[in-house]
Each structure stands twice: as C-alpha cells, then as structure tokens.
Computed example of a mutant assay.
Amino acid sequence: MLQATDEAPEVTAADHDGETVTLSFAEPTVLYFYPRDDTPGCTVEAEGFDAELAAYRDAGVAVYGVSTDDVESHAAFRAKYDLDIDLLADPDGEVATAFGVAVEGGTADRVTYVLADGEVKRVYRGVDPDGHARDVLQDLVDDGVVAGE
C-alpha cells in the first residue's frame, strides 16, 4: 500500500458515465476506495462525500470514489441516491493495485488517499464511513493542503 510522500501513480478508469478519466494528481484530490455500490457503509460514505462536495470544490479539491463495480452499477447508485460525486469503475482492480489497495473476493478494501503535487499526502485505513468526508476535509485544511475559511 502506498504511504505518505510516495509518488502517486497516474491512473485511467471509466467514470459513472463511461467516460475515460486519467488522473495524475497534480492538483489536490481525494481518492476513496470502497467495497460495493448500494451497501449500507458505502452508501453512508458516498452520501457524506456528496454532502461535502461543494466545500471540497470550493477548496479546489477533486473527489473520486473507486470500487470494483462497473459503470452501470455506478450510474444506478448515483441515480438511486441522487449523488453528484464522481465514481470510477475498477472492475479489474487495476486502480486499486496501483495504490496497493487489497482486492479480496472481488471488492476493494475501504481506504482513502489524499493526493497533491503528484504524491500521496495522507492515507486513511480502517475508515469509519460516518463523518469520514468531513474529517478528511478538515485534515486537508489542518495539513495546509488547502486554505481554511
């Protein structure tokens, strides 16, 4: 698993609309891995990031959720919960592997990365989905990755 100060890998994946997205992480980005669409913990986490999305965008931080679900599953998940958060499909686990995130039984572990300037700034393991998005945003301010209000 990548650690703070490691170089961030460039990754490419399809988003919830089937559009190809390539991320190099030069700009501040939160990349959160989660096991499955439309499961209780994953829904809480996605809704949390979605609720904080305007604050992340105001701070100049991109947010992407990544799971091994396919594009169609992501689109249905976003529609069901009226989410605006960007979701990346990683059905072969290539993005997870690039970050050293374990994929067991076809699902990725719940891990969040904060990336900027092409490197890993912070790693969250064993994430409690409830309140996680708010905590990460506060840590971005506390760590000086983004300016506070």
Rank of each mutant, 00 (worst) to 15 (best):
D135C: 01
H132Y: 04
E119L: 08
T12G: 12
E47G: 09
G148F: 10
F49H: 00
G18Q: 03
G126L: 08
D143W: 10
R122M: 10
R110S: 11
D6H: 09
A133E: 02
H132M: 02
A54G: 11
Q3C: 06
G93A: 14
F49C: 02
L115H: 06
G148N: 11
R57D: 14
M1N: 13
A89F: 01
G100Y: 03
A55S: 15
D82E: 14
Y64W: 03
E72A: 15
D128R: 14
V103W: 07
A8L: 12
V63I: 08
E119C: 09
D69T: 06
V66K: 08
A54E: 14
L137S: 00
L115Q: 07
V145G: 11
Y56A: 03
V123L: 03
V61R: 04
E10A: 15
T5Y: 08
Y124W: 15
Y81T: 12
R134C: 08
V136M: 03
L87A: 11
E149L: 14
G65V: 04
V101I: 10
R36K: 13
H74M: 11
H16S: 15
F33T: 07
V63S: 04
A8N: 10
C42R: 07
A8M: 11
T39S: 14
A62I: 10
D38F: 12
R78V: 06
V66T: 09
V95E: 04
P91F: 06
D82M: 10
D69N: 15
G106C: 04
V30T: 00
E10I: 12
S67P: 13
T29H: 04
D58G: 12
L88G: 09
V71R: 13
M1Y: 09
A133V: 02
L23I: 05
D17I: 02
E45A: 08
A54N: 12
D92T: 14
P40R: 05
A75L: 08
D37N: 09
A108C: 04
D86M: 13
A8D: 08
T97G: 12
F99H: 07
Y113P: 05
G48K: 01
S67W: 12
V127G: 05
A133N: 01
L23F: 10
L83Q: 02
E7N: 15
